[in-house]
């Protein structure tokens, strides 16, 4: 089982030092994600979730601790860790097709091959027929579909997602969650997904890491055993409600502790 681990984070600490202000963002965070696993990290706002995922992606560096992908220490961003951001990060001058081809072009793949791979992933996210549209012509949900296709087309070893559906309306969000659950099942992609939405965490995750308030540390790891396929029907199941109320209790404690501190 141990050699099945895709991503291992060990004793990660992050301190922001800006002159006389010292903020401890992460404290001794360790976690493991196995191959093909869908892992969620849920925590209150400002708990350092985004810092954590930025360190894993290589966009930020840790103060101490290590991130190992397939046993190799990572430093700096790379195509092996694809990321979908909360804000829209599409290139507005490129069509849907060219956006999805971006990573493949950076790798130097020939045009024909690029087109075929991109077409496959555009279809996977349900955007067939929109290949030549520009981002400005798409809705928020469609933009995030393109961002997911663009990251998957690169065939990363792990897909990192930083509250990718945070800016979407409630209905679109559920549709996107089901789409992602379906993609994860069909492609066996390893996914690390960060959110502050407990429903989202329980609905999508095989396992859920619950983080404390700042400085962020892991409070608990839960295994979610819901029947496949994961979809909106799961939201009303007893097991779902049970795990959800457990996490709510924990996060509620966190926020009331935070309030007492002040």
């Amino acid at each position: 089982m141990r050699d099945d681990v895709m991503l291992r984070v060990e004793g990660l600490n992050k301190v922001f030092d800006s002159g006389n202000r010292r903020v401890e963002a992460l404290s001794d965070v360790s976690l493991e994600i196995r191959k093909s696993e869908f892992v969620m990290i849920v925590g209150p706002s400002g708990c350092g979730k985004t810092t954590l995922i930025n360190i894993i992606s290589g966009l930020e560096s840790a103060t101490s601790g290590s991130v190992l992908l397939d046993g190799r220490q990572v430093s700096g961003p790379g195509a092996d860790r694809g990321m979908v951001f909360q804000g829209y990060s599409l290139f507005p001058w490129l069509t849907v097709q060219k956006n999805v081809e971006f990573g493949l072009k950076m790798k130097g793949l020939p045009t024909g091959e690029r087109r075929d791979i991109a077409a496959r992933y555009i279809e996977l996210v349900g955007l067939k027929g929109f290949e030549n549209a520009l981002p400005k012509q798409l809705s928020g949900g469609m933009k995030q579909r393109v961002a997911i296709a663009r990251t998957l087309a690169n065939e990363p070893e792990i897909l990192l997602m930083d509250e990718p559906f945070g800016a979407l309306d409630a209905q679109t969000r559920v549709v996107m969650q089901e789409l992602l659950a379906d993609i994860s099942r069909r492609t066996n992609t390893t996914i690390l997904f960060i959110t502050h939405d407990i429903d989202e965490a329980v609905l999508l995750g095989d396992r859920v890491y619950v983080m404390s308030r700042r400085p962020g540390r892991i409070r608990e790891v839960l295994t979610v055993d819901l029947p496949e396929p994961r979809n909106h029907h799961c939201l009303v199941m007893a097991e779902f409600q049970q795990i959800k109320s457990h996490i709510m209790e924990m996060l509620w404690q966190e926020s009331s502790d935070a309030a007492m501190d002040k």
Binding site: G87, K107, T151
Partner: peptide, 17 residues
């Protein structure tokens, strides 16, 4: 926009790219 630059970097683009 920082988001676009970060996206490109996690898609494997080099500094020059």
């Amino acid at each position: 926009d920082r988001n676009m630059i970060n996206a490109a970097r996690t898609l494997g683009a080099s500094k020059f790219q």
